[in-house]
Nucleic acid binder design. Structure first.
Length: 231
DNA sequence: GCGACAG
DNA sequence: ATCTTGTCGC
């Protein structure tokens, strides 16, 4: 059957537990559904950056789609909402996903891959936000976090492109990647339907100038503006 | 029990 | 996440 739409996901009560124990249980069910597979590199052109801003009362999400070959913004969409779940480390998908799905629902184009502001498999239950949204939508996703969740990983060399592994026992759950020489690295992990290698390569391609990928920076700014103009 | 803890 | 402008340095 066809991939679920953001609206269908939002409407499914089974996917929105109210309490942390049930949320953790859902993550344990989603984690095994993550698939690591090569992202057909030449077909990757449209990359969507996702981010959420919030204050005490409201959440505002943004999706910014950019064409990687030109680095131009192709389309943007936003979504808003009221917090339905407390902030709990390791569970923030349950807080940020609803407005994010509203934003994705407003997109007319179909991005080749989604870049998420947060962890993918580098997560206590191997189901960070990037895995969560990727599995639910059955779309390729990559997690790019500004700080590590759990295992800090190694320290990469100073130059752009250098990386070190983030391991959980014998498995490499993510990479500490230097996107700018001499600048604090980012933490890249697989969300869904990408390999860790492709996730890092894509992150670098999407990050020509600053520490964070351009689509994520744009989504950060847009969601912030969206939040500001609500009040 | 204590500390750490994506955004 | 957010409170927040200019400023020091490569």
């Amino acid at each position: 059957m066809p991939d679920p739409t953001p609206a269908e996901i939002l409407a499914d009560p089974q996917l929105w537990p109210a309490e942390p124990p049930q949320a953790m249980e859902l993550q344990r069910r989603l984690a095994p559904q993550v698939r690591c597979e090569p992202l057909p590199a030449r077909s990757v052109r449209l990359v969507a950056g996702l981010d959420v801003s919030y204050d005490n009362t409201r959440l505002a999400a943004a999706a910014v789609v950019m064409d990687l070959t030109t680095m131009r913004v192709v389309e943007t969409a936003t979504g808003a909402g009221t917090p339905r779940f407390p902030y709990v480390s390791g569970l923030f998908a349950f807080r940020e996903l609803p407005p994010l799905l509203h934003a994705l629902d407003g997109l007319r184009c179909r991005p080749d891959v989604l870049l998420c502001d947060g962890a993918g498999q580098a997560h206590p239950r191997r189901c960070g936000l990037a895995c969560h949204v990727g599995v639910l939508l059955n779309r390729p996703t990559v997690g790019v976090a500004k700080s590590p969740l759990g295992t800090p990983g190694g320290v990469p060399e100073r130059g752009r492109g250098a990386w070190a592994s983030q391991r959980h026992g014998d498995t490499e759950v993510g990479r500490v990647l230097r996107t700018r020489s001499g600048v604090r690295p980012v933490y890249v992990s697989v969300g869904h339907r990408v390999t860790l290698e492709d996730a890092c390569a894509l992150t670098l391609r999407a990050t020509p100038s600053y520490r964070l990928p351009e689509p994520i920076r744009a989504a950060d700014q847009l969601s912030r503006r969206r939040l500001a103009e609500q009040h």
